Amino acid sequence: MRHNVLYVHGFNSSPLSVKAEQTKAYLAKHLPNVGFYCPQLATTPIDAITQLEDIIYSEQDCTWHLIGSSLGGYFSNYLSEKFQLKAVLVNPAVKPYELLADYIGEQKNPYTEEVFFVRAEHMSQLKALEQAAPSVDCKQKNNYLVMVQTGDEVLDYQQAVDKYQHCRLIVQQGGDHSFVGYEKNLAAIVDFFQLT
C-alpha cells in the first residue's frame, strides 16, 4: 500500500515555508517511497478545501497522512474527520474565523507576492468547516498528534490544548508560532504515521 503525506500550510504561507521544506527533505532522504504533496492553497477557505479534497480523491488506492500548520491544522482537522485520516496538527488554529476577522481587506503573500482579499464571507466559510472537539476515545483511535509551543505569539496555544485534550499532545515550553525545532520532531511524526 502506497503512503502519501499531504502537508497543509497556514494562512498566507506557501509550499516554500520552512516546515514544508523540512518535511519534504526528510521524507526524500529517509522515506523516498512516500509521496509528498504540498499545494499552494487557494486564498478562499472553500476553494482551499476543495483543492485539498481533490488531491485526496485523486489517489484513493493509497493511505493519506496529514500535516497541518496553523490554519492548515484547522483544515487538516476537517479533512481528518471527513476521510478518517491520521493528522499531525502543528500550532493549529482553533477559531480562525475570529483571528482572521482582523485581516479583512487586501493581503499580499510574502512568498508568491500574490495580492488577494480576505472578505467577511470567508469567516462564514471557515465557521462551516469547524469540527467538534475529539471525544475521550480520541487516544484510542489515535488519529491526532497535536504539537504546540507555549510561546506562540499568533495563536493561544491553550485553545488547542483544550480542544484536543483527549488526543496525543506534545506541549513544548517557549518557541513561537513557527514551531521552533520542528525538524527534530519529524522522526516522531513519521513514527506516528507508522511509515517505517
Score class of each variant (00 low, 15 high):
74 Y>N: 09
74 Y>D: 11
75 F>E: 11
76 S>D: 11
77 N>K: 04
77 N>A: 13
78 Y>H: 12
78 Y>I: 01
80 S>N: 07
80 S>V: 01
80 S>T: 00
81 E>V: 03
81 E>D: 12
82 K>S: 11
82 K>C: 07
83 F>H: 14
86 K>I: 01
87 A>D: 09
90 V>P: 02
90 V>S: 06
91 N>R: 01
91 N>H: 04
91 N>Q: 02
92 P>R: 04
92 P>K: 03
94 V>A: 03
94 V>C: 08
95 K>D: 13
95 K>S: 14
97 Y>H: 13
97 Y>E: 15
98 E>H: 09
102 D>P: 00
103 Y>V: 01
105 G>C: 07
105 G>Q: 07
106 E>M: 12
106 E>P: 06
106 E>A: 14
106 E>I: 12
107 Q>E: 15
107 Q>A: 08
108 K>D: 07
109 N>K: 06
109 N>M: 05
110 P>D: 12
110 P>K: 03
110 P>L: 02
113 E>T: 11
114 E>T: 14
115 V>H: 09
116 F>Y: 15
116 F>D: 11
117 F>I: 10
118 V>L: 10
120 A>R: 09
120 A>N: 12
121 E>R: 01
123 M>N: 04
124 S>N: 12
125 Q>F: 08
125 Q>L: 01
125 Q>C: 04
126 L>Y: 11
130 E>P: 01
131 Q>M: 15
133 A>P: 10
134 P>Q: 06
134 P>G: 10
139 K>Q: 12
139 K>N: 12
141 K>E: 15
141 K>C: 07
142 N>M: 05
143 N>D: 13
143 N>V: 01
144 Y>E: 10
144 Y>H: 11
145 L>W: 00
146 V>S: 12
146 V>G: 07
148 V>P: 06
149 Q>S: 05
149 Q>K: 02
149 Q>V: 05
150 T>R: 04
150 T>D: 09
153 E>C: 00
154 V>R: 06
155 L>C: 08
155 L>I: 12
155 L>Q: 08
156 D>N: 13
156 D>P: 00
157 Y>K: 04
159 Q>N: 15
161 V>M: 04
164 Y>P: 15
165 Q>E: 14
165 Q>H: 11
165 Q>K: 15
166 H>N: 15
166 H>C: 06
166 H>Q: 09
166 H>P: 11
167 C>L: 03
170 I>N: 15
173 Q>F: 02
178 S>Y: 00
178 S>H: 09
180 V>M: 11
181 G>M: 03
182 Y>R: 07
183 E>M: 01
184 K>F: 10
185 N>Q: 14
186 L>M: 10
186 L>P: 15
186 L>W: 02
187 A>S: 14
187 A>N: 09
